[in-house]
Structure formats: structure tokens, C-alpha cells
Amino acid sequence: SGLSKTVAENIVKVREETGQFTTRAQLKKIPRLGAKTYEQAIGFLRVPGAKNAFDATGIHPESYSVAEQVLEVAQIDKKELGTQKAEEAIAELDVEKLSGVLDIGVVTIQDIVDTLMKPSRDPRDAFPQPLLKTDVLKMEDLQVGMELQGTVRNVVDFGAFVDIGVKQDGLVHISKLQKRRIKHPLEVVALGDIVTVWVEQIDVNKGRISLTMLPPKDQTIEG
């Protein structure tokens, strides 16, 4: 999710000092949790009992407005999430029709609908497992240029986070998903996809791994 050990410890420290978090936005004030890291990690960080029910789900804040529209069509209030009534109403939605009405991709709508139906479920638990290298267990085992298999754990506007078997997920920037230019990562990958990646950069101190899905022979982008 992009959180370093230091940031994770700071989150625990602030929670112990000030009490339980009530919004995801409060995490922006965590020491050493910068804006970029917040954006990358927040979809994985849930706030039980949050003021905004979406903060307790796997929905990324940048998709809250779409989720609101989905619930409006289903005639369900956010406070009803997790109830049988909400699950049944959301299950009745026509995802393809909803995609056209909201002008949002089918994959994105389906992900949001699935999450709203089971707001406490972590979709990553059901993902198939890639063939991980047995000699790559931590960041220090990685080498630039190394070819790996991984599972797409999160998709955001600027790229996709891939689990390659070490503690930190690696980021494949949108420009490194494929040779052709694309408008959004969901054109190429979806949550749960097993992909082949190559290691581009490793920053052990910051806990960041940069990956590419472009084979070594395809490192330039076509116009």
C-alpha cells in the first residue's frame, strides 16, 4: 500500500494519543505521510465507525462521488451499507446500464458495486496467487531489471500497485503499463490480475518499488 514502517508506527502513535480516527482525512496529518503516499495507500486504510460510511470500505476517496451516484440509483442511504436491504438493492443494479448512465467504465462500476454489496470484505483475499520467486522475500532481495510475477492489488488514476511477494507493493506508473498511451490504467489492468513486471527502481529507505510492465525491448512510448 506504500506505507513505510515509520509512517505505520506514526499512525499507531497518533491513534493512541488522540483516540480513534473518525475520518480518512485525519490521516493526512500523520507525520511523514505525504500527499502522494496518502493517495496511494488510503484505499487500503479503513476507518471502522467512520462519519462517512465509505471511509470504512475499500472504495478509494477519488471514487466516492461515483459510489454516491450508485447508491442514489439503488435508493440506498450510506448508513444502510452492510445490511441485507442494501445488499439486495445493489445486487439488482444493471452494471452495464449504470455504466452508460454515469459515463463510467464497466470495470470501475463493477468494482464499486461489489464493494458496496460487501463493504467489509477485502477483495484481495480471493485473488489467485501468482508464481512468486522463493528467493525474493524482502525489498533487499530485489534487483533492478529482475522479472517477476505479481497480483494487481490497487488501481488508481496514475498507475497500478502490484504485490510481488515482498512487504511493499510496487507501483507501475500509467506510462509503464503498456507501450501505447492510455487514458486510465483500467484500460490495461484490473484488480486481481496476475501480471509480469520488471523492477525499475528500489528505494529501501522510503519503502518504494517502481515497476514496469514494458518488456526490456519496449522501453519507449509510441506517440
Score class of each variant (00 low, 15 high):
102 L>P: 01
75 Q>N: 13
135 D>C: 07
80 E>N: 09
135 D>K: 10
49 G>N: 03
93 L>P: 06
106 V>F: 07
108 T>D: 13
73 V>M: 03
94 D>H: 04
78 K>V: 01
107 V>E: 07
47 V>G: 00
95 V>F: 11
83 T>I: 01
94 D>G: 08
119 P>A: 07
54 F>N: 06
99 S>H: 10
59 I>E: 00
63 S>Q: 14
130 P>M: 14
128 P>S: 06
92 E>N: 10
90 I>D: 09
57 T>G: 01
117 M>N: 10
103 D>W: 03
63 S>L: 15
119 P>W: 00
95 V>S: 10
105 G>F: 15
92 E>R: 07
130 P>R: 13
120 S>F: 10
81 L>S: 02
75 Q>H: 12
118 K>Q: 12
57 T>D: 02
78 K>R: 13
119 P>G: 02
110 Q>H: 11
84 Q>F: 08
113 V>D: 06
90 I>P: 06
45 L>K: 02
111 D>E: 15
105 G>K: 15
133 K>F: 12
86 A>M: 04
125 D>G: 06
136 V>Q: 05
55 D>E: 00
79 K>C: 04
63 S>I: 07
54 F>R: 04
46 R>G: 13
112 I>V: 02
65 S>I: 07
97 K>T: 14
127 F>A: 03
113 V>E: 07
127 F>Q: 10
89 A>E: 08
98 L>T: 04
61 P>L: 03
128 P>D: 02
106 V>A: 07
97 K>Y: 15
105 G>I: 03
107 V>N: 05
118 K>Y: 10
115 T>M: 11
85 K>T: 09
49 G>P: 08
92 E>A: 11
56 A>M: 01
63 S>F: 14
60 H>L: 11
134 T>D: 11
136 V>T: 10
127 F>W: 15
76 I>L: 08
121 R>E: 13
47 V>Y: 00
96 E>T: 08
134 T>E: 12
47 V>R: 00
78 K>W: 04
64 Y>W: 02
86 A>C: 10
104 I>C: 02
129 Q>W: 09
52 N>H: 05
46 R>Q: 12
126 A>H: 05
60 H>R: 08
118 K>L: 13
91 A>K: 08
44 F>D: 12
86 A>P: 05
78 K>P: 02
123 P>T: 10
111 D>S: 01
115 T>G: 03
117 M>V: 09
108 T>M: 06
80 E>G: 05
52 N>E: 00
68 E>V: 11
45 L>W: 03
129 Q>H: 11
132 L>G: 00
120 S>P: 04
49 G>F: 07
93 L>W: 05
94 D>V: 09
49 G>A: 03
64 Y>E: 00
51 K>G: 09
91 A>Y: 05
66 V>I: 02
45 L>I: 15
120 S>G: 09
116 L>H: 01
50 A>C: 13
132 L>F: 15
133 K>V: 07
131 L>H: 09
45 L>A: 10
100 G>F: 14
126 A>R: 05
55 D>C: 02
52 N>P: 08
89 A>W: 06
96 E>W: 10
72 E>K: 08
117 M>C: 14
109 I>R: 04
125 D>E: 13
135 D>I: 08
77 D>K: 15
94 D>R: 04
89 A>D: 09
81 L>V: 00
56 A>G: 05
132 L>W: 15
71 L>Q: 04
47 V>E: 00
137 L>Q: 13
81 L>K: 01
118 K>F: 11
72 E>Q: 11
58 G>Y: 05
99 S>I: 04
53 A>Y: 08
88 E>G: 10
61 P>I: 02
128 P>L: 02
